[in-house]
Design a protein around this nucleic acid. Sequence first.
DNA 1: AAAAGCGACAACCGCCGTTTA
DNA 2: ATAAACGGCGGTTGTCGCTTT
Length: 278
Amino acid sequence: MGRSPCCEKAHTNKGAWTKEEDQRLISYIRLHGEGCWRSLPKSAGNPLSLSLSLFPFRGLLRCGKSCRLRWINYLRPDLKRGNFTDEEDELIIKLHSLLGNKWSLIAGRLPGRTDNEIKNYWNTHIKRKLMSRGLDPQTHRPFNDTYQPPSPRNDATLRHQSNEIKLTTDSFEDAKCSSGTTEETQPDQHPQKGHQHPQKGQLLNLDLAIGPPSQTETRPAWSGNSAESKLERRVAYEFLPVAPSAAAAQAVCLCCQIGLQKCSSCSSSSSTGLYRYC
DNA sequence: AAAAGCGACAACCGCCGTTTA
DNA sequence: ATAAACGGCGGTTGTCGCTTT
């Protein structure tokens, strides 16, 4: 019954990666591509490999999970290194206000950035930045504002919504119908002034389906049937005032929606394109 | 110069949904 | 049908380097 373990934990390394290990992992992925992390340590660590020159990844004593993390967060060639720009800052803040701590979803909107990187950056920089503005980093509302918006920020709420989505958004029609049925996700019902969530009728197109091939290459956002991808769909449709097809025709891209920059699809102005997913 | 404090970030841990034997 | 591993994610921790005292 069940599978056999991918690696013997007693014989795997832990802690910081060495340059040698990195090189072995890179070599392995160049040969075999990403994915199949389960088989990676076996292949990469196969002592029967003929020579180090032919099998430079030989002797990689790491568990597949660790290899995946190292690759995704550090070794991937498309990673953008260096400081976050102000635009990225603001985008992260906007996305966090909508998605909560869904770092992978947020990272999917920031080409070359990883969820771990964004999470760390959030905890070390943006939290403080928001607090200095007098805003609660979790709710994105002023500290003296006691209203607790029912949003996807709360994990329990998330799970609840994910379950709900299974029942309500399995099709476009369902999504359309359900968008107005859930009390807790009606942003326009917040009684207080100054609430930052977009109003119903103010289309918020996160463009989760056709984003650039950053991290989404291996995770097509709309194709899955998981609770997560359904949640993405829900977020995208949350504020749709009309049928999705009609909404798509009117859609304004994310960058324009949050006021970062204009783009040719949404206005006559040109765009420099960093977040231009239109 | 040394110790303490702090910030940044890589890596680990544990959980959850999915897959597979 | 079931149990166990996989893959992915978010939260947390450990470590390193820089700054301050």
